[in-house]
Amino acid sequence: MKKLFLFALVLAVAVAAIGWWRLAPRPHPVKAVRVKRGPVEMTVTATSAGTVAAAQEARLRPEGTGRVARIVHPEGDRVLAGDPVVELDSDVLRARRVSAEEMVKVQVAALGTARTWEKYAESEFRRVEKMWKRERQEDTPLVSEQQYREAEWKRDDAIARSVSAEAILSEAKARVAEIGVEIEKMTICAPFEGRITEMLVEAGETVAPTSVICELQTNHRLEIEAPFDETDFGRIGLDMEARLTFDAFPNEPVKGVVSKIAPKVTATREKNRTLKVTVAIPSAGKLSPGLSADVVILCRRVPEATYVPTRCLRDGRFVYVVEGGVARKKEVKTGVSNWETTEVLDLKEGTVVVSLLDLDFQGELDGKEVAVTETE
């Protein structure tokens, strides 16, 4: 009987121990990370892909009406500023210039004759005038007053003829220059360095000032415009670095610089409120207008920051620090942040922090014992 009692007692103690072991609180298994030191960046991403465009483009038009005589640079050619692109027929104008130049020669000869006669008339007038004055002083009838007046009139007439000849010569020269300008207008030149992206006329075609001859785009200065959410308005600034990833070259990221920010936010019923930002691409390389790219702007960078994965933050300002096997909820001051990492200003490097996304626990963890199963 005594043995049976002892057996029952041992069994009861064992059952109680098992029950206590099963019901006793256990440390909660968690995954954790250590606070690290390194660079942290604050970036903003465009709400949709942007499209590459030439920083400068133009649609060339003639200044006058004419027939296309020659296409100097066809579609696809690279041109320098001032290079002729298309020449219009200028044969009629050139013939007019030859005629005008001949007229200049005639007027040069006429002016020479007029000036020779002017010199003679001036000399003759001086001679007659001298005798006229002497006659009035000495009362000697060398020349009559009529002869004096006639010499004076001839002198004045010769001067007037010279002035008229000079004016006619100036008009003739101006006409030559005017025709020269008209001839120059018959050659459509590139206003800047670039590539002919589209030629819209053919040789023999008649064009007018309203006709578009071709389209020209810069081939070394490209830019990309992309929309950003209105919440990023206060973060984006000029000259900030931008990172571009092209669908055509996914493994070849390109750096750019913010060159323009729209003065207002676009607000329509169909779209969210967005801000248009233009990024200049310093080196075009093999890029071409029309390509699409994802745009990320680097707003700020801290090269030596203490940081944790952003997923460790609760409500954006709390973390669970593991101290002596217990999780302690702590409010932290944060700095630069992005989707992956967040700078924490008041945690030391090496501090163990619970990774919230890896936590399989319902309720408040503050003050609970934890067992770290994995540390990054």
Rank of each mutant, 00 (worst) to 15 (best):
V13E: 12
V15P: 01
V15E: 09
W21R: 04
L23H: 03
V30L: 03
G38N: 06
V44Q: 02
T47I: 09
T51N: 02
A55R: 09
A55H: 08
Q56T: 15
L60K: 03
L60Q: 02
R61P: 00
G66A: 11
R70K: 15
V72M: 11
V72I: 14
V85P: 10
V85G: 11
V86T: 13
E87A: 13
E87S: 11
D91H: 09
R94I: 05
V98D: 12
V106L: 14
A109P: 00
A110P: 06
A114F: 09
T116R: 12
W117F: 04
F125T: 02
R127K: 13
K130S: 11
M131R: 13
R136E: 11
Q137P: 04
E138S: 14
L142V: 15
A151Q: 06
W153A: 15
R155Q: 15
A160H: 04
S162P: 04
S162N: 06
E166V: 01
E171V: 08
A177D: 11
E178S: 14
G180M: 04
E182I: 01
M186R: 15
I188Y: 15
G194W: 14
T197L: 06
E198C: 11
L200E: 02
E202M: 09
E202R: 15
S211N: 13
Q217K: 13
P227M: 07
E230R: 11
G234E: 04
E241P: 09
A242Q: 04
A242R: 10
A242K: 11
L244F: 10
T245E: 08
T245H: 07
D247P: 00
K255C: 04
K255G: 06
I261C: 02
T266R: 05
N272T: 07
N272Q: 05
P282G: 06
P282H: 07
S283Y: 05
G285Q: 07
S288G: 04
G290R: 00
R301V: 11
R301P: 05
R301G: 07
V302T: 10
A305T: 06
T306W: 00
V308P: 06
P309D: 13
R314A: 12
F318R: 00
Y320G: 01
V321C: 06
V322Y: 00
G324C: 03
K329D: 08
T334L: 09
T342Y: 04
E343P: 03
T351R: 07
V353F: 01
F361P: 01
L365H: 03
K368F: 02
